[in-house]
């Protein structure tokens, strides 16, 4: 569904794709500005905004105090009055600190005010374990925000999706949470170079076609599932669907895939109970129950926090092997 007319691509990293989207949107619209802890000269804790302060100046790439409630709130106030702030919350684990402004202001203002307030804010944040950052810097919280009415939530897995979705998020008059899996910043892929390229929020992508089982995977697990599918080639034919947007969720694309394969595995790094997995399964059950040939399977974190020590962390983080086990259970 890429809207670009220029079909050229470049091989780039996930990180560079995000930076490209930020740069292009700041060039396109003076109302776009970045704000967050260390996003300026420092370039962001994961170097995503590196160089942007030099290009656009410190007013448009604005370092903030360590004050999530304050600067997220300021982003909401700026958006309500016509700006397009892109606010970085360094780790999603810190979202709780600013939750009030997101949940009661950002998400509700348009509705409470009878539809009159645009809320063109994008909140970028990082998720995911795998680097020994322990429980307060490794969480995957996107379910909270996908669940909460009035917020759109996207979680790209590829450079193409990162660029296309971030540009759409920034241009959107709705609040969009943009979840970046910190383990895939170095992931490379083809990214359309056209500055007009965007991807619509709410559309899934069939990353690999297959016949036997549908793996609905997000973020890091998209890449791992694709590698797994290559490994299983000839043995099991795996279709990999990346929803890309968690809310709205592209039910049709997922159900269509399950109608073809009859089997469903959902792989997402959030905790298993009451989660993203459950939502995908529920929609398939509601809309495609009679296509199912086997019980749907969930792959995620078994309701623990993310521990520090590598053997412990490796134990709870979902990986390709877990997806394979799940596939084996149903195929």
């Amino acid at each position: 569904m890429a809207q670009a007319t220029d079909q050229r691509t470049a091989t780039t990293t996930f990180r560079e794709a995000i930076r490209t989207a930020l740069r292009e949107e700041m060039e396109r619209d003076d109302g776009v500005f970045l704000m967050g802890e260390d996003v300026g000269d420092y370039g962001g804790v994961f170097e995503v905004t590196q160089g942007l302060a030099d290009e656009f100046g410190e007013e448009r790439v604005r370092d903030t105090p360590i004050s999530e409630a304050g600067f997220v709130g300021a982003g909401v106030g700026a958006a309500a009055t016509g700006m397009r702030p892109v606010v970085e919350v360094m780790f999603s684990d810190f979202l709780g600190v600013s939750a009030e402004q997101m949940l009661n202001q950002m998400a509700k203002m348009r509705y409470m005010f009878g539809g009159k307030t645009d809320m063109g804010i994008t909140i970028r944040t990082t998720e995911g374990g795998g680097m020994g950052a322990a429980s307060q810097h490794s969480g995957t919280l996107h379910t909270w925000f996908a669940h909460f009415p009035g917020i759109k939530a996207v979680a790209p897995a590829t450079p193409e999706a990162a660029k296309g979705l971030l540009k759409s998020a920034i241009r959107s008059d709705d609040p969009v949470m943009f979840f970046e899996d910190k383990m895939i910043y170095e992931r490379e892929g083809e990214m359309p170079t056209d500055a007009d390229f965007t991807l619509p929020i709410g559309e899934a992508s069939v990353e690999r076609e297959g016949e036997d089982v549908t793996v609905v995977a997000t973020q890091r697990l998209v890449g791992e599932s694709l590698s797994l599918a290559d490994e299983l080639e000839g043995d099991v034919s795996v279709e990999v669907v990346d929803p890309r947007s968690l809310y709205p969720l592209d039910t049709d694309a997922i159900v269509e895939s399950v109608e073809k394969t009859g089997r469903l595995v959902v792989a997402d790094e959030s905790p298993l109970s009451y989660g993203t997995h459950a939502e995908v399964v529920a929609r398939v059950v509601e809309s495609g129950f009679f296509s199912l040939d086997a019980p749907p399977q969930r792959v995620g974190v078994p309701d623990t926090h993310i521990p520090f020590s590598p053997p412990l962390e490796d134990e709870v983080l979902p990986q390709a092997a877990d997806v394979r086990t799940a596939i084996d259970r149903v195929v």
Partner: peptide, 19 residues
């Protein structure tokens, strides 16, 4: 929400400043 307004005003002032 008691206390929610001041961050919003700060944001509105930030927008005024940027523009």
């Amino acid at each position: 929400i008691v206390g929610a307004g001041p961050p919003l005003a700060t944001g509105a002032a930030l927008g005024i400043d940027q523009r």
